[in-house]
């Protein structure tokens, strides 16, 4: 990471650009939200009111988040790639600024996704959360990791000819160290059981590593 080259204004400008574009073209964002709604409704309807234990609920929640995120953030660089403006953007801004601008935007999208999804999920599955702060912390660290890995992988897949399905295939093994503790901690949050703080720490450390790695590796992609 070349911090000396990093300009916060540039990252903020890219965030703002994507945000404004996102408001204008809501398709990708709406698709992500609708995907999460459809998946949750699908699961809830197919199950038809059966009572689940917390492990299963936690797993379902994270599976929905994972695939909704995949649907939403795989096209992070798509607009620029399709319009052929990615090269121009790279002339204007430092790669690091592009990466972090995109990453913050992805993080904001994922935060919006979970704000939308979580209440619906909890209501449809009639689930009470015993330790709400733990759940929020887990989701926070979870989506940071998804955003960091997702942004870099979205950059990787822009040059791929076959796009459908490629993104989740690439994302899943990378985010597994976040995914697995997240499920276990979410289960603990729902049931109110004791949890291992180490797992939360692991998620935070892995987030930091993913951000650093994305930052270092993004420089090589031009």
């Amino acid at each position: 990471m070349k911090l000396s080259n990093f300009r916060f204004e540039q990252a903020a400008a890219i965030f703002r650009k994507d945000f404004l574009l996102g408001l204008r073209r809501r398709a990708a964002f709406a698709a992500m939200l609708m995907f999460s709604l459809t998946a949750t409704a699908n699961l809830s309807l197919s199950i038809g009111g059966a009572i689940f234990d917390e492990n299963l609920l936690a797993a379902l929640l994270w599976v929905v988040i994972f695939f909704a995120a995949s649907a939403g953030i795989s096209g992070t660089f798509e607009t620029e790639a399709a319009a052929g403006t990615l090269a121009t953007l790279k002339l204007y801004a430092e790669p690091q600024a592009i990466l972090f601008g995109k990453m913050f935007f992805t993080l904001a999208s994922l935060a919006a996704l979970t704000v939308f999804l979580l209440p619906i999920f909890l209501i449809l599955f009639d689930c009470t959360v015993a330790q709400i702060w733990l759940l929020l912390a887990v989701i926070f660290f979870g989506i940071i990791g998804l955003a960091a890995a997702g942004t870099l992988i979205a950059a990787l897949t822009t040059s791929a000819s076959v796009k459908g399905g490629l993104f989740p295939i690439l994302l899943f093994p990378i985010t597994l160290p976040i995914f697995l503790p997240a499920i276990q901690l979410t289960a603990a949050a729902i049931s109110g059981a004791d949890f291992e703080t180490e797992l939360l720490m692991t998620m935070a450390i892995f987030d930091a590593i993913l951000i650093t790695a994305a930052s270092i590796l993004f420089d090589y992609l031009d």
Partner: peptide, 29 residues
């Protein structure tokens, strides 16, 4: 995932870069 990525990128230079980055990223896990 790595081999699928390689198969999906046709441009030789892009493929080399992209798959190298993915390979290094996956080692971290």
């Amino acid at each position: 995932a790595y081999l699928t990525l390689r198969a999906a990128v046709t441009d030789e230079k892009a493929r080399a870069k992209v798959s190298a980055v993915y390979s290094l990223l996956s080692v971290l896990t």
